[in-house]
Nucleic acid binder design. Sequence first.
DNA 1: AAGTGGTCTAGACCACTGT
DNA 2: CAGTGGTCTAGACCACTTT
Lengths: 235, 235
Amino acid sequence: MLKYQAVAHKILTHIEENKLQKGDKLESIEALAERYETSKNTIIKALDVLDSKGIIYQVRGSGIFVRGHKRKGYINLLEMKEVTSSLKNFNTQTEVLALEVQISEAEIEANLELEDKAELYYVKRLHAIEGRPFSIEESYYLKEFVPYLNQEIAEASIFDYLERDLELGFAFVDHFMRIVTLAPENRQLLNLRRQKSGLLIESVYSLKNGRPFNYKKTLFHPDEAQFFVMGQNEF
Amino acid sequence: MLKYQAVAHKILTHIEENKLQKGDKLESIEALAERYETSKNTIIKALDVLDSKGIIYQVRGSGIFVRGHKRKGYINLLEMKEVTSSLKNFNTQTEVLALEVQISEAEIEANLELEDKAELYYVKRLHAIEGRPFSIEESYYLKEFVPYLNQEIAEASIFDYLERDLELGFAFVDHFMRIVTLAPENRQLLNLRRQKSGLLIESVYSLKNGRPFNYKKTLFHPDEAQFFVMGQNEF
DNA sequence: AAGTGGTCTAGACCACTGT
DNA sequence: CAGTGGTCTAGACCACTTT
């Protein structure tokens, strides 16, 4: 692990262990550089990471402060890989509705920027939170990068498996969100009577080399799903 | 303007003027450093900015590539200040439904982290796109930071006014999103018959010193509003 | 005036990609 | 193995806040 990442982790751990609250001040950059035995610039880079994650904010001439808070139960869109990993503090269940190898169709080829037909793992899952249906996820993984997948993995966390066992981490994501009218089948799965709309998020995950390897459509229960996004103004 | 921001702008302009497409390769860092007469590290910092905006991506050992595209008509959540500025390529209209000075209520105080009552500008606006109702925005600006506002400003872009005339730029935002059932009044404003749900985004904008100064509730038309968010995996 | 965060530089060295 | 992006350092200097 790189030094600045290690330092970022240590500072984050320090914030968590000491239960620092929003507005609490950290040590100065100089002091942090000495504490973690590194240069000022490496501390700055570590703080940039925490800054971009919304964990701290820095005020010139004043200090480094904890940004903290966030509302509970909201999914951080920018860290969302799959629903269960975003809701680790809750009791979640996953039911695998389908798991098979497919040949790509036009919609998938467009989103994964494929020029030819390709083999895919197709996984359809129903996620529940505290027993209540939460989201329906249809996910397409390029077999070129994800050569193997099974029921057991799909019942746990696919992204954990990709990162841990295949050492396949995504480098960037695009999420596209809109409200959709639910098909009767999906209303039934989400146990919805009156309400007819849900939030659909289409996500494309790409590798470090820019190749998209996972396209995903996640349909969220309108009453259960809540999201937050933290942004910076850098330009 | 800082050197790295200026360089970032120049590189962006270069991409736009030469209509570079997704996957197109830029010059090497070394070449860019020479072209823009600066050091390697400053180029890296400029590229970091473009990276975090989703404009480029970098592949170690290979090069710097344009990330580009994005679907058209989708609002970039992370750059969203108010609806009109996010949809500059479209023909938008703004109707000011209310504009007044208020004393804060509990909900606003919680979101703006106020400990006492405070004076606020309250602005309610209806945004339309190509004549079709798009969103209803209720916004609360702390009078301490926004001492003056009028109908004319509210009909144009309030954030443009804040940035240009008050030199008041936000440093970070928190957005909270969920689906809500629409009140009859809002259904009428959005010209909705059957559909009863909309997307609600609550946003808190903070200054460089960490002080929230604007709390906003924006209710989007379920068929018109589409969003995208671009994320990186840095940790 | 002192303290603190931010920019910028030059250069050494490392890690990965593609030929 | 050459080319290219990424990390890390030490230090000078600048900009803003606080006392």
